[in-house]
């Protein structure tokens, strides 16, 4: 049964039909302020990561159409097929080596220096600034700075060793496959140490003084105070630093690349996942290793290593937030 409407009635229906839409649009117009960030983030962050997964399933040099679908073959190559697996596990081992040195030194040395700084000493503010300063340098600058100072011919470090009578330790530090990776780890720590020191210092400062004073009255020495009071209260920053060090150690690239080249010499002794990834995707590794697909799969493998640790840390932080 058709209902006939007068013109006026029609108009009002249209109005009442349209009104909610206009109202909704107006109500949600604030989303326009969110939009630019979402678009930029979507295009330049989310899309590349999702696309990485897709590209990693192809055997593709980066030129021409991407047609040769190989499934998980690139992953299998890295994990099981020589020479890829040799390169992969060697690089992974080097990353783990860097990680261990970094975590041990960042946590223990960082806590130690922070503890010294927390004692009311004159000039602690100046020390803080000095310790943090290298953190503000570009890694490229740090690499070349130490590259010059470690120059085997006239480098300041070897010259110094000769002066103090340790001439036989004057080695081509960065040119020897036995020392290069360790030296690079130390250079990396020289650059980054200020960060854990300040994080630990901030945590130590929150420890109630009365607690330590009570311990001193009870006759506890510095070692006891350190192990019984300070360290337990420092568990949260220890985890924060460990997680950040973990992510940093698996992302390490610049120092190896700039000091030892894309081939991460000598004899691949400083090759890490970052340099291997760069070589695969951009450097070219000869005809057999074809670029972009293989590189993307290595990137995804690295992500699979990093992400669980990050998730754990976020979970931990949330838990901590609830506790406080």
């Amino acid at each position: 049964m058709a209902k006939t409407l007068t013109a006026k009635e029609k108009e009002s229906t249209i109005e009442t039909n349209l009104y909610p839409i206009v109202k909704t649009l107006k109500k949600y117009s604030f989303l326009l302020m969110l939009l630019p960030a979402v678009i930029i983030y979507g295009v330049f962050i989310l899309y590349p990561f999702l696309s990485s997964i897709y590209v990693s399933l192809f055997d593709w040099s980066g030129i021409g159409p991407m047609t040769h679908f190989v499934g998980l073959n690139n992953y299998i190559k890295w994990l099981t097929e020589d020479p890829y697996s040799t390169m992969f596990y060697r690089a992974l081992g080097h990353n783990i080596f860097i990680l261990l040195i970094n975590i041990i030194v960042s946590v223990f040395f960082g806590m130690f220096i922070a503890f010294l700084l927390s004692q009311k000493i004159k000039g602690s503010g100046i020390y803080k600034i000095i310790f943090f300063m290298p953190h503000t340098f570009s890694l490229a600058v740090v690499a070349f700075l130490w590259g010059l100072l470690l120059n085997p011919q006239w480098g300041v470090v070897n010259n110094f060793l000769k002066t103090i009578g340790l001439g036989h330790y004057a080695l081509p530090w960065l040119g020897s496959e036995h020392t290069a990776l360790s030296i690079i780890a130390v250079i990396g720590l020289w650059h980054s140490m200020g960060f854990p020191i300040l994080v630990f210092l901030a945590a130590i400062m929150t420890i109630p003084k009365s607690l330590i004073e009570a311990a001193i009255i009870d006759g506890a020495g510095i070692p006891t105070i350190f192990s019984k009071i300070v360290i337990p209260l420092l568990i949260p920053p220890i985890i924060t630093i460990s997680v950040l060090t973990f992510i940093g150690s698996f992302g390490t690239f610049e120092l190896m690349f700039l000091l030892e080249g894309a081939q991460a010499g000598p004899y691949y002794s400083t090759d890490v996942l970052g340099t291997l990834f760069y070589r695969t995707a951009f450097g070219g590794m000869g005809a057999e290793a074809s670029g972009m697909g293989l590189g993307a799969s290595l990137a995804i493998i690295t992500l699979i290593i990093i992400i669980p640790i990050s998730i754990l840390s976020i979970w931990f932080q949330r838990k901590r937030n609830i506790e406080f």
Partner: peptide
């Protein structure tokens, strides 16, 4: 937690 350099290829 996603280091962007790992998505450098795409």
């Amino acid at each position: 937690m996603l280091p962007l350099r790992l998505a450098i290829v795409p």
